[in-house]
Structures are given as C-alpha cells and as structure tokens.
Design a protein around this nucleic acid. Structure first.
Length: 824
RNA sequence: GGGGCGAUGGCGGAAUGGUAGACGCAGGAGACUUAAAAUCUCCCGGCUGAAAGGCUGUGAGGGUUCGACUCCCUCUCGCCCCA
C-alpha cells in the first residue's frame, strides 16, 4: 500500500531530476550491448530563455526518445548550443558586455531550464560552438574544404544587410529580398568574400536515395532551391571593334533558336559596355544605373511591366545566321545562367511581353499539329507548349522534344555551343564581417599570397575586448594583435583574414561532434562515427528546409568524398514540428502581445503537466494555439493517475479473478497497442487520449472487487509505464512507491498480444440505405448468416423496411450491415 | 501565375471509404460543503419532440459509391514554397 498524499510536482520533480543525474541513467554508453539509437533535435541558440517553442519542440521529441529507450535501445539524446551569432555581438555593442560572457551566462540559465524540463539529455556530450575546443575543429573543417578546392575567395556582388552590417548567403535572403534574421532590405555590395563550392554538389544534393523518411515537402523545397534545368549554352557571334567575339547564352529551349528575334544582356553584363554604340550610350548608362537600384525580386516580378534599352549593337545567331539586335533588360539576371538570353517572343511569355512593348518581330517556330497557321502579332500570350518546328530551316517538321536534342547535336558538331545543365543553386557565401564567429583560418602574405593556417596552429583564437565600429568591416580588422601575424610559409609579416564564418557552418557538423565530444586529437574518431552516425531521428523546424538541412547534407557529402566519414546522408529520418501559436491563433510576438512564457506554468503545474499539454495540443506537425486554460485538463488527468495508484495499488493482489478481469486485460492490450503505434508515428495527442481513456476505465473499477486482482494491478503498472515517456517524474515517483527498485525509465516497454487486443463482442450497426437504424451487441465471431438473420428480423429494422423491396445486404465484418432497399 | 497543405460543435481536436464529434477545455444541472475552491455524478452540434425517436449536419457546389470528413471535379478562404 502507498501512503496517500497530495500530488505535489514541486516535491516530486526536482527529487527525480537529481536522482537521474546522480545515476547517469541518460548517458549513452559507447559500449552498450543494446542497439544504438541517435535521437537528435536541432540545438538551440542561447538567447537566454527557453521559450514556448522550445517546450513545444522538445517535449514530444523527448517522449519519443524515452519510448525508444524503454523499447531496448541505447539512446543517445544530446543537447548543446549554437552559440555564435549576432545577438551576442549586438548585446556587446549595446551594453558593453563581452559577447562571450553574455553567451555563457545565457547558456547557464538555459541549462537550468533544460534540466527542469526533465528530458533525458546526455549532458556529458554537450557541445558549445563558441568554445575554442569546438571552433578549432570548425576551422579545421574549413581547411579541409580549402585543400579540396571547395573553399575559395572572390570579389563579386554579394547580398548585404546594412542593418546586420554583413554579407548573407542566398539562402539567408527571403523571397521578399529581406534579411532572414532582421527583416531589413538586402542590397548588393561588391566585396571580397569566401565561398564554399556547394554548387559542385548540386547534382548529388538532388539525390535523396539514402534518406529513409523525409517529408516529401522538404525534399521538394530543396529540389526547387537547387533548380536544375537542362538545356544548352549557345555562343552568339559579335563583332567588337573589328574583332570576332562570342557571347554565350543559356537556354532550356534550343529548339526555338530560329525564333530568336532579339538578344538580351543583363544590365550588369560585362559585354554591355563593349557592345553599346556611342549614340545609345547615355540611354544605356541611365538604364543600368536604374536597374542597379532594384532588387532581384522586383526585377523578376511578373507583374512589373517589362523595360529595357536597345544597345545599338547586334549579334549573329550562330544557327540561323540572322543578325539580331542586342538589348539590355532588367528581367535578365547576371546571377542566373550566362547573364544573357536569346529572346524568343513567340514561345516565352516574358520575351513575348518584352517584344510587344518594344515592337520587336514575333516569329512562330513551334506549332501544335492541330493548329492553323496564324499571325503571331494577334496572339495574346506566348505559346509555350511543345509541337512541331516551323520556320526553322533544316529542322522544319521535327517534333520540338526531338528538336531540342538535334539542335544541341548540331551546335556541338559545329563547335558553337554545348549541352549544359544549369542550376539555380549558387555557391555558399560564408564570410561575415562580424566579430562573434569562428575566425576564417587564413593569412595573407605579401610574398605568398593566401596561406592557410597550419592545422597544428589551430585554433585561431577569437580575441576578447574588441572595439566595435560601424564601418561595415569586421571588428577584428581593427585589432592589431589579431590581424598582424607572420606568414606560416616565410615567417615574414602578414595579416590575418578578419572575417568570421557564417554560423551555419557551426551547425553543419555539430551532430558529428556529439558522437565524440571530448576528442582533442581529431574532430571525431572513425569508430565513434561508425557507431553513432548517421542520425536515426532528427526533429526540427521546417524553416531550415533549405538552410541548415541543405548545408548539412553538403558537408556530409563533401566529408564523405574526402574520406572523413563513410556515410552519405546525415539524417535518416526527419520530422518537422509545427509552430506553437498564441491563444489568438497568431504567431507569438511581442508586438501582438500574445507571448506566453512557459516558466510560470511550470511553476504552477509542474513540468509533467506542461510537457503533456504540449503534446496534447494537437498533431505534432500541425502546431497549434497555447491556451493556458487547457492545462487544467492535463493537470486533472495526472492528479487522477496519482490518486488512482495511491488508492488502488496493493503489494499482494488476490489470485482470484472476477468477471471483469478479462475486459481489463483486453483493454490493457488494446492500450499498449494504441500508444505504441501512436508513438511510432509521432501521434502524441492521440496516445495521451488513449491513456486518459485507460485511466478513466480503471478508475471506474477501482472500488469493485476486480481492483484486488493481479490483472487489475498489472493494468496499473502498465498505465504508469505507458505514461512514463510523457510524464517522466510522476510516473517514476508512483513506480518506486509501488515497490519497484529500478527506474521506470529503464524498465521494459510493455508488449501486447494481437489476439488480446480484440473484443469478444461488438456493437453491430444496422443501416438502411446507409442510414443507421439500429445498434445491437453481438459476439465477435458471429457469422454473416447470423448477422443477416438478426438484422432482417429486427423489429425496428422491419418497421423501416415495411413493404420496400430488399435489393441487397452488405456486411462489413466487425462493423455494420447495410440493407439496400427500394420503396415499393 | 504555378505547386503544396489545410478548413469538422462555443474552443483544441478524433475518425484503415463503414456508428461523425473519441479525448480534453469551456458551459449547464446536481452531490459534498456553513460557504467557496477542489473533487465526484449527469447533460452538452442544430432543428423538432414530454419521451422514444425523427430530420439535419464535417467551408460552398457537383460527382463516384450500397455507404463520403475521407476518393474525383469546380469554387471560396487561410498558410507555405517556387515564380
């Protein structure tokens, strides 16, 4: 028997948290006889507080990890901090506090909160990306990329956020051309920068054969971002100052080359200057200046009226030999393809609009077989569908699909172009002109140029007490002790690269370090890698679909090719949680005033209630509103579990069973099945509903004789075990109070027998023409014949049938019988 | 503009093509209490009916089917991605 006490989470929760810590029950051993399971959640940025989103994300994630542990896996569930980044630096500027101090004190606070959550974190594996022990290896990885030619420096127009005072990768610029971090408009700025050659992995990144279970949506988003298009690069001829020159264009429709009635250069194209005639110069220069002030998004908008200027120059179509006027227009982007296009107004909508605006000839070169010849000047839009070639010299009559290949063959034969696959994916710009990040380990020597810092000199320490000036350059540039160094090759005076790395580099490999977090010789040992990676289950927000998740895949593929790891995909299974919203159904934000801090509810109800509530809001991938009043329901539920066990647990149950025993045993098996299946599929809300039903059913019987039986007592035990992943503290307390010596979290997950999940009887529904008319209790093994007899002879059913004619009777075993009748 | 996801009581949500609304919140009635809170019992989509029951009902409109929240088509609204 258990002494009856009131459920007090304040007493129960800290007690077990300390006990678990002391017993180290959540540390994943590297030498376990059990199968390993790597359960990973995206690590937090140390903003200082765990907010509602973290709780919403981590609670179900942890329940899943606990479920796997009870199922017999050696679960590794690490946590760490994505600790470099702008907020710390901004705090440093604003409040004169050291970025490092600010970050570490935030981490301390968040550690406390993470512990209070009662999740099974393996603290021995914690990684903090701003610590030299970590960023040393971030720098080491950069050097490996550099050695492979996968890291390079170039001067080119880059995305620049004037508010963050730094460059951004393409992935960090939102569709409306704003900074994904601060929302300011992003401009273009010519600047020296380091890039990683992610584009050379474009094809490999399109291949998802090695992932086990990723949301289709995320795969599609990555594929769209990579943006593969097949076509050809065709070189148009130009005569510049008496010289024969060639200007390449990229096209996905080489079959339409005879329809190219104009040629367009992007305003920034290096050829613009050369090809423009003196008469057109003023107009062209004005247009270029205007285009520069616009964002790519504005330029690409299909709503915007087409604009452009004739350069006065001409190029020669290398296939048709036609002389073609050269225009510049802002709808052609320097960053895509060759920065130049052949304008085929008849078969490309944007070219069509452009030709209309400037009265350029529209020549039809593709015609569907059922189409009559028509005058293209009467068309209202371009005809982008495939058909047969017309007005195309030797290619007339060829189906367009086939013509694509034939035209490409032809240009390759003639040496005027090549087959080409173009990708939208650009190289990853990783230089940040900011302080709080891992320094790029490069030295510039007047003698030896760009020299990588030797590996044995890592880390390149990030200095403290730096001066912040809003110059748009890295603060490190003004730190003489940092910048001034010696050349690793000749020992002469040299300067260090002052930019730091994009923090997405840090997060591209943190999950590798968790497997071997304290290794000071190498970033990870091959054995540990083999043992733990790839990650079995990864949980995190869909906002990283084409940021972190693409970068991490790139890292893994590159490291695989370098021979540092043996696998090709970092995350086997991926799950995106939904977003937790305010009570008004809107995104939580200070400006809306609907932000709720979890801490006060943890204080009031305890961790277990808050955890369970997070899972009960709705489907994990759907997100939902946090409504404080709904916590009451979970609180009552846990209290009912508490009093049920407290009042009903007995050490030595009767061996005598009662008539209700069988029903309880069946419900127990049904509930095990239900909760197990739901947890497997991340359906935490319905799993909890099943546990509530189980609890309610047991409460109904708790004062009946069956409560003394071994069957009932076993059901109580199962209830605790099934609830343990959701509410780890209360279940541990009740488990140990009911005479178990070991932790409930190391107990074995209950198993069910399929046979016992089936009821002996069921409610047979009798329908007439699909409408429910009667319900009767029948035995589970009832025959179809009996069902027909029972249904047709049922008085209520008969009164509905009346004189109607029975057409057929459909029986769905275990469910219902539908009698189809036609009125007489 | 293209593609994807979604819309179910007052609210959050549940339903392998087979009893719509499980589970919970809020609400109502009652029990206990000097009283309140907590707890317990019952009710709770709409219309109708004394009740049994009947009719109706899953954003709107069509379709397939013995049977549609579920599948198909069209539309409206909301969110996301690519333009």
């Amino acid at each position: 028997m258990i002494t009856r006490t009131k459920y007090d989470p304040k007493e129960v929760e800290p007690k077990w948290q300390s006990q678990w810590d002391a017993d180290q029950i959540y540390h994943a051993s590297d030498n376990s006889s059990k199968p390993n399971f790597y359960n990973l959640v995206m690590f937090p940025y140390p903003s200082g507080d765990l907010h509602m989103g973290h709780w919403y994300n981590y609670s179900p994630f942890d329940a899943y990890g606990r479920f796997k542990r009870m199922q017999g896996y050696n679960v590794m569930q690490p946590i760490g901090f994505d600790a470099f980044g702008l907020p710390a630096e901004n705090a440093a500027i604003k409040r004169g506090i050291q970025a490092r101090t600010w970050t570490l004190s935030n981490i301390d606070n968040m550690r406390k909160q993470l512990r209070a959550m009662g999740a099974q974190w393996d603290w021995q594996r914690e990684v903090v990306t701003c610590q030299p022990e970590y960023y040393k290896w971030t720098q080491w990885l950069f050097l490996q990329f550099y050695k492979q030619g996968l890291a390079y420096r170039t001067k080119a127009p880059a995305n620049w956020c004037s508010s963050c005072n730094t460059t951004l990768a393409n992935e960090q610029v939102l569709a409306d051309n704003t900074c994904e971090r601060c929302g300011s408009v992003v401009i273009r700025k010519e600047i020296d920068q380091w890039l990683l050659k992610i584009s050379s992995y474009a094809e490999r990144l399109l291949d998802f054969a090695e992932v086990e279970d990723w949301p289709e949506k995320t795969i599609t988003m990555q594929r769209n971002w990579i943006g593969r298009s097949e076509g050809a690069e065709i070189r148009f001829k130009a005569e510049i100052a008496g010289q024969q020159e060639e200007i390449p264009v990229f096209t996905t429709r080489p079959d339409t080359i005879y329809g190219a009635t104009f040629f367009v250069l992007a305003p920034e194209h290096p050829w613009v200057e050369k090809i423009t005639t003196p008469e057109q110069q003023a107009e062209v220069e004005a247009y270029v200046g205007q285009a520069r002030r616009m964002t790519e998004i504005e330029r690409m908008s299909s709503e915007k009226e087409k604009s452009g200027v004739f350069t006065g120059g001409y190029v020669t179509n290398p296939v048709s030999g036609e002389k073609t006027p050269v225009w510049i227009a802002d709808y052609v982007l320097m960053s895509y393809g060759a920065g130049a296009i052949m304008g085929v107004p008849a078969h490309d909508q944007r070219d069509f609009e452009f030709a209309r605006k400037f009265s350029i000839t529209i020549r039809e070169v593709i015609r569907a077989s059922d189409e009559e010849p028509s005058d293209p000047t009467t068309w209202t839009e371009a005809r982008e569908a495939l058909g047969e070639l017309v007005n195309s010299g030797p290619f007339n009559g060829t189906p367009a699909a086939e013509a694509k290949a034939r035209v490409i063959d032809y240009i390759e034969e003639k040496g005027i172009g090549t087959r080409k696959i173009n990708y939208r994916l650009r190289d990853w710009l990783i230089s940040r002109q900011r302080y709080w990040g891992a320094p790029i380990p490069i030295v510039y020597c007047p003698e030896h140029g760009t020299v990588p810092v030797p590996e044995d000199q890592l880390p390149v320490w990030l200095p403290e007490n730096v001066q912040f000036k809003a110059t748009g350059e890295s603060p490190l540039r003004y730190e003489p002790d940092f910048v001034n160094t010696t050349c690793p090759v000749c020992g002469g005076p040299a300067t260090r690269e002052a930019d730091t790395m994009d923090t997405f580099i840090d997060s591209s490999w943190y999950y590798l370090r968790y497997a071997d977090p304290h290794n000071s010789e190498v970033p990870w040992s091959p054995e540990k890698m083999q043992q733990w990676l790839p990650v079995n289950q990864y949980v995190g927000g869909i906002e990283h679909a084409i940021l972190h998740l693409l970068y991490a895949r790139f890292f893994i593929k590159a490291l695989h090719d370098m021979g540092h790891i043996t696998f090709d995909e970092p995350f086997k299974r991926l799950f995106h949680q939904g977003m937790v919203l305010g009570a008004d159904g809107q995104k939580m934000s200070k400006s809306r005033g609907n932000v709720e801090a979890p801490d006060k509810y943890v204080e009031k109800y305890g961790t277990d209630t808050v955890r369970c509530y997070m899972m009960f809001i709705g489907p994990f991938d759907a997100g939902g509103s946090f409504r404080a009043e709904n916590l009451e329901g979970i609180w009552r539920f846990l209290n009912r579990v508490w009093s049920l066990i407290g009042e009903s647990w007995i050490d030595h149950p009767n061996t005598v069973e009662t008539k209700d025993s069988q029903a309880i045993e069946r419900l127990r098996h049904k509930t095990i099945k239900r909760v197990t299946e739901d947890l497997k599929h991340f359906h935490f809300n319905t799993a909890l509903a099943g546990l509530m039903e189980f609890n309610n059913a047991l409460i109904k019987q708790q004062h009946n004789p069956v409560a003394q039986s071994a069957t009932y007592q076993k059901a109580l035990q199962t209830l605790l075990q099934l609830l343990a992943p959701f509410a780890p503290h209360i279940t541990e307390e009740l488990w140990q109070q009911s005479n178990h010596k070991n932790s409930i979290h190391t107990s074995e997950w209950p198993v069910y027998e399929e046979e016992l999940t089936k009821d002996e009887a069921f409610t047979l529904v009798i329908q007439l023409n699909g409408k429910v008319r009667e319900r009767i209790e029948v035995a589970a093994d009832i025959s179809e014949e009996e069902v027909r007899t029972l249904a047709l002879n049922n008085p209520r059913v008969q009164s509905f049938i009346g004189t109607a004619k029975i057409l057929k009777v459909i029986y769905v075993p275990g469910k219902l019988v539908n009698i189809v009748v036609r009125p007489a």
